[in-house]
Design a protein around this nucleic acid. Sequence first.
DNA 1: ACCGGGATGTTCT
DNA 2: GAACATCCCGGTG
Length: 194
Amino acid sequence: MAGRRLTRSFYRRDPRVVAPELLGKVLVHGDRSGRIVEVEAYCGAIDAGSHAYRGPTRRNATMFGPPGRLYVYFTYGMHWCANAVCGEDGEGVAVLLRAAAPLGGLGEMRAARPAARRQRDLASGPAKLCQAFGIDGSFDGADLATADGGVTITDDGVAPPPAPGISTRIGLSVGAEHPWRWYVPGDANLSRPG
DNA sequence: ACCGGGATGTTCT
DNA sequence: GAACATCCCGGTG
């Protein structure tokens, strides 16, 4: 089934609504594609765990722009992570793309992820996903709704799981109490078993 | 399988 | 100066 790009209105909603709906959708960059199996919502001013909690800065500027853009940030001195900006313009909310099941462009993914021993290690974490898909800081602000930056998310007809896994978010020291992580139960490509 | 620590540099206090 | 929405490798069992 041919993938249809998600429109801007898909993203222009609460990230806690968008996040579980992104499970099963397909992240695409050139020949590389993968089914999204794990996400987390970051909720701006009400969320102490969000980069946007204290308002706009140079780093998080994309989060405060229109929905449907890619917010890419650098962390731990060596890793990139990618989010889909959600909500209304200026709201500062987004969904972190944490893991994907590789579908296409496997050769490019393997070349980009020499440390991955197995296929399920290619994109089973937010920074691994960015490596596998070749997403770095130059993609910050890329528009998923138009695919002008070469990256987009499509719907190929696979429905999100009717009963997704839900847990607290991974790796946070503040805001860790919120159950804003969603995943496909039992999928081999999760950042941790679940 | 599981666990502990090092890598590496931007951002904010 | 500390924290960081992480990953990888080498140890042990």
